[in-house]
Amino acid sequence: MKINIFLGAAMAVFFFAACKKDNPLIEQPTTVKEDPLEYATDSISYSIDGTTYNLSKFSSFYSSSNRQPHSKVDSIVKNSYYISGLKDSVLYSRTYGIYNDQNKVDIIFIKTYAKASMVQALILRPKDVMDLFTVGSRNYAIDYGRDNIQNGIALRFSDGFKTYGSESFREPPKLSPDAQKYSKFEITSMEKLNSGTYILEAKFNAMVFNENNESKKIENGYLRLVMSYIDFAL
């Protein structure tokens, strides 16, 4: 009796193995869900006096610059202005432009670094460029292009309005220190996608001024920047 049971079990195993060999299990390929953000583009929107503006048709490759931080006039000789400032530091700024057929907005990230903490590329740049884009609030640098003391952010619009004052030492500053007292710029997220691309998002409001010191109020601002690895390598 035991022999019959053993033979029956052996035959069952044999037929199961044969069936498995003839009909191998087919593993289904793993489907990777595509992230719609991979198709995102640079975009900025904002409202002025109840009218909303959306710019996303074109975007420019970023530009960067070095400036003299804590600038001041040392002397004026024959109408030439001689400027000095901190010798062991550099104000580094990076500008992204977004525009359509009618308007353009430049977004400028600004920070002063010790020269010893920078590397020489086409110009001096921070060793860690990501430091410019960490999540959190930024002040508006109202002395950008002139005194260059303040770190933070600046916005420049194609109609001549901007968040900072005159860049010329030939005339006194036009903006009061509290010109952006009730303004806000906040980087709300900095997300890395599977492709290595980064998506920066920010919200903002601000006062903007022209050379005649006329002002406008920017409200409900939203910014999205799409940054590739090149943005952090150069």
Rank of each mutant, 00 (worst) to 15 (best):
S47D: 13
S47R: 02
I48V: 14
D49N: 14
G50N: 08
G50F: 13
T51E: 08
T51G: 01
T51A: 06
T51Y: 09
Y53R: 03
Y53A: 01
Y53K: 02
L55T: 07
K57T: 15
F58E: 05
F58D: 02
S59C: 06
S59I: 11
S59P: 00
S60E: 15
S60Q: 07
S60G: 14
F61Q: 04
Y62F: 15
Y62P: 02
S63T: 14
S63K: 10
S64L: 08
S64P: 01
S64D: 09
S65Y: 10
S65M: 07
N66P: 03
N66I: 10
R67H: 13
Q68N: 09
H70S: 13
H70K: 06
S71E: 09
S71W: 14
K72P: 01
K72S: 11
K72E: 07
K72W: 15
V73N: 05
V73R: 06
I76T: 12
V77R: 06
V77Q: 11
V77D: 07
V77H: 07
S80F: 10
S80T: 14
Y81S: 04
Y82F: 15
Y82D: 01
I83S: 02
G85M: 06
G85I: 13
L86P: 00
L86W: 09
K87W: 10
D88W: 08
D88E: 14
S89E: 13
S89F: 09
V90N: 00
V90W: 00
L91D: 01
L91Q: 12
L91C: 04
Y92G: 02
S93I: 03
R94I: 13
R94M: 12
R94Y: 08
T95V: 11
Y96Q: 02
I98F: 13
N100G: 13
N100A: 13
D101Q: 10
Q102H: 10
Q102I: 13
N103G: 03
K104V: 04
V105R: 01
V105K: 01
D106Y: 12
D106S: 12
D106R: 05
I107G: 01
F109G: 01
I110E: 01
I110P: 00
I110N: 00
K111P: 00
T112G: 03
Y113R: 10
A114C: 06
A114W: 00
K115I: 15
K115P: 00
K115V: 14
K115W: 01
A116Q: 04
S117R: 03
S117E: 15
S117A: 14
M118E: 05
M118N: 03
M118C: 15
V119T: 12
Q120D: 08
